[in-house]
Amino acid sequence: MNRKKEAHKQTVHFKSDFDNEYLLQRDECAIWKRFKEGDEQSLIYIYQQYAGLLYNYGSQFCSRSEFVKDCVQELFYELIDRRKKLGDVRSIKAYLFSCLKRKIVKGLKKEERFLLNEKGLELGFMIASIPISTQGLEKSEYVVIERKLNALPPQQKEIILLYFYEGLSYLEIADIMNIKVKSARALAYRALNSLTRLLLPYKKKGSIHFPL
């Protein structure tokens, strides 16, 4: 009976707002470490930060939302089951993204309903180039950029999105795409090179030359 009381105390004093310093400071190394030790708040933090992003990312190469949802849920279950065996991670986001991607690819292959192109996932990663300001770029440039980006090989499209949209570093991207950091840099360079060459020269520098 005494023991029960104690355990009950524990649950009552579960503080739910993130009042711990490591959570407030978003110190991801500390959060990951606490998660590995079984800390529930850290788990909830990780979920709240990344569940939505994971779902969006997964949906890019698999259109069946139920399947993607299941993959996200399973991913968290597996993290919990293996938490003691997990290593330290450089970036939680990159780690989760790479796990999710592996899971989806594996699941789709198993079903053999989608024959996956090993070079990349043909299904997804359409890029939109949305004008966000009248400064900097010409309207026509957005159009050209978008067209060019979508004409890139799938792997290059993915890298552009991970790099420009998800804000991941080359190191993190290499983890997700299962390539070397060097190759990630090279891939990004190739994509960006073909992109920047499309840009218009500055108006004041002379006549407008439309490159295509």
Partner: peptide
């Protein structure tokens, strides 16, 4: 800056 900021997934999916 504009190039970075204007890059989006063509379709975004919300859980």
């Amino acid at each position: 800056r504009q190039i970075v900021l204007s890059t989006h997934y063509k379709k975004s999916f919300t859980l």
